[in-house]
C-alpha cells in the first residue's frame, strides 16, 4: 500500500501539490501550522488511489512530501 506523508510544519501552503496530483488526493487544510500557513493534507479515504507518480513530491518547493510503499 502507498503511504503519503506531508510534513505539516515544513509546508507553506503553496498548493502546487494540489494542482499536479492526477488523483485529487491532496487538499488544503483549515488548520494553521506554527509558521502561520494552512498546510496541505491528504484525503485519508483517497490515499488508496495514489499511483505513486511522485508529481506532488517533484513540485513541492519545501520538500515536505514523502511517498512510501508499505
Amino acid at each position: 500500500m502507498i503511504k503519503i506523508n506531508i510534513d505539516q510544519e515544513r509546508c507553506k501552503g503553496c498548493r502546487l501539490c494540489v494542482i499536479v496530483c492526477p488523483k485529487d488526493i491532496i487538499i488544503m487544510s483549515e488548520h494553521l501550522n506554527s509558521a502561520g500557513y494552512h498546510p496541505a493534507i491528504k484525503i485519508e479515504e483517497k490515499e488508496k488511489d495514489c499511483i505513486a507518480c511522485g508529481k506532488c513530491y517533484q513540485m513541492c518547493p519545501e520538500v515536505a512530501i514523502e511517498i512510501n510503499k508499505e
Binding site: I2, E9, R10, K12, G54, Q58, P61, E62, I65, N68
Partner: peptide, 18 residues
C-alpha cells in the same frame, strides 16, 4: 519511493511559498 535526500539538512527553507 520519493523521500528526503541525504544531501539536504532538515532545516526549513527561508523562501517564499511557491
Amino acid at each position: 519511493l520519493f523521500s528526503y535526500p541525504d544531501s539536504l539538512k532538515k532545516a526549513r527553507f527561508s523562501y517564499c511559498p511557491g
